[in-house]
Design a protein around this nucleic acid. Structure first.
Lengths: 285, 285
DNA sequence: AAGGATCTATTCGATATACTGATAGCGCTA
DNA sequence: TAGCGCTATCAGTATATCGAATAGATCCTT
């Protein structure tokens, strides 16, 4: 790693290129003409390459200088952003938000859209994982917020109850098979536990024909008539049919949705998104 | 605009946060412990906010410091890139590459993986849009390269022909319906034009049951047996079945794939990725 | 409970760096 | 040819930054 560049020199460099003159750049950077000349000399010494071509009365960047100019501008801009993050933290920031796959696909886009309208300088980084993985990721400090489904024994402030339903292919009768073929999310997942617990309580035998984290894969298997599955009602694609007691299947308990927060994530941006999500999720039909 | 930050201070800041100690950071930045202490003081004076919480034996960033750390790392990384752009211009750079959705999902990952292995200091920013949108984005100078499907009358250097096929649900016979239900990409898309042109030439009446840019949505509709669609053969998921003349559908012309290049994008990185893609796409089975 | 260890903060003196003002040198224009 | 307007260089000065030493606080071991 080279020594970090001196952004004061870059600021002067940008001013020189933009004015085409050392003398005209000087007032822009609050230095004398001779200081500007020496700064450009120091910058070129530092990077080990000439960046500027000096004419009798003008100064222009060479090809390397042109490329370097782009970096100089980016560095100065990022420096301003860094400064703003400290001095005006309310307006900026980035939040790392974890959500389960199905929330990402179906529910979050409108929510994040509305949040982005209200907070244009806040960046939300979405991480899609199963709830169990999200708990771990957040505990490791790699997430600020996570929308998760509550697991048994898990202390979680529940924000909403999500209807959880059986689904099947509209053109198949997979539920008639014995043992019941079920498509499940991966072990440890609350949705999976709900399904297995309901089947256990009903003394219904089953066999697992699909086990993965992928919602798309699970949906594909169910659509193919190879299994039934449990899904959050709002995640049910139009191609699947909701089934239940009428088909001889036990009722499924609702999923308890909550928002986990990293206690070390105390920025205003995280605060605001947290409030926004709590309000929005609680309000949704 | 605030005065630019001192990257030497940021380097020290990062070292302090990473080691949790001023004393341990000192050898990392080639300074004495007292110099490190004063640098942190100067940094906090400069930004006008405390960034570090000092314990008796440890130092940790506060919430503002955590955010600032992200900027510090980005600034240092960008400084290295800037340096490399001067001293090793052939190896660095960033390319803005536009690709259609289905290419992004199925085909580009292995290509970009191989490119990244050969060119670790080149950053590729991917933009996924329909070909029609990509042409416009590139013309506006916001892309360096774009992989697009050739539209009628469009001058484009074709790099490969992509087999374009009808697909349907393996468990449905949607093609038997009259008029034919088709799922289409949005208007203006070459794939859409191919389908409609082929149906027109065959005098086959059709109705459009899906029209969107989303591949996932289209696949869902087809899988549901609600429509048939045209897809690049290599984009066909395992859950769909390729159909064609045997099912009474007209042959679909191949998609002509080409690479557009922004004439103002002349960096070595763009050059190299362009060459790489041309070679790689031409070679693929 | 006491002593040693280990850290951060501060002071002081030395050194390095960066600046301004003055000026030399060069090329252009009238 | 003289004057103008630029960049480069020089010398002196001011400021910034550093290391070594040390104070103070806390923690750990005996």
């Amino acid at each position: 790693m080279a020594a970090p560049l001196d952004l004061n020199l870059l600021k002067t460099f940008v001013a020189v290129v933009e004015t085409g003159s050392l003398s005209n750049a000087a007032p822009r950077v609050g230095r004398s003409q001779s200081a500007v000349s020496m700064q450009m000399q120091r910058l070129e010494d530092m990077v080990g390459n000439q960046l500027l071509v000096r004419g009798p009365r003008t100064v222009t960047p060479n090809a390397i200088g042109e490329d370097f100019l782009i970096y100089a501008r980016r560095l100065l801009k990022l420096s301003d952003e860094a400064w703003a993050s400290v001095t005006r933290p309310m307006e900026t920031g980035s939040v790392r938000l974890g959500v389960p796959d199905d929330y990402a696909a179906f529910l979050l886009p409108p929510v994040l859209s509305r949040f982005a309208e209200d907070h244009p300088l806040v960046t939300v980084e979405l991480v899609c994982e199963q709830s169990t993985a999200l708990v771990k990721t957040l505990a490791e400090g790699r997430l600020d917020l996570a929308i998760v489904t509550r697991l048994p024994e898990q202390p979680l402030d529940v924000v909403r109850l999500e209807r959880f339903v059986w689904v099947a292919s509209p053109n198949h009768v997979a539920w008639q098979a014995d043992p019941l073929p079920v498509a499940l999310f991966e072990p440890g997942c609350a949705a999976r536990m709900n399904v297995l617990e309901a089947l256990g309580n009903a003394d219904r035998s089953y066999r697992c024909t699909y086990s993965s984290a992928s919602l798309l894969g699970l949906v594909a298997v169910v659509q193919a008539g190879l299994a039934v599955a449990g899904l959050a009602q709002r995640s049910v694609p139009p191609s699947l049919r909701v089934i239940g007691i009428n088909e001889g299947l036990p009722a499924l308990p609702d999923l308890e949705i909550g928002i986990l927060r990293n206690p070390l994530s105390t920025t205003p941006a995280v605060e605001r998104l947290n409030d926004f999500l709590r309000r929005d999720l609680a309000q949704q039909a």
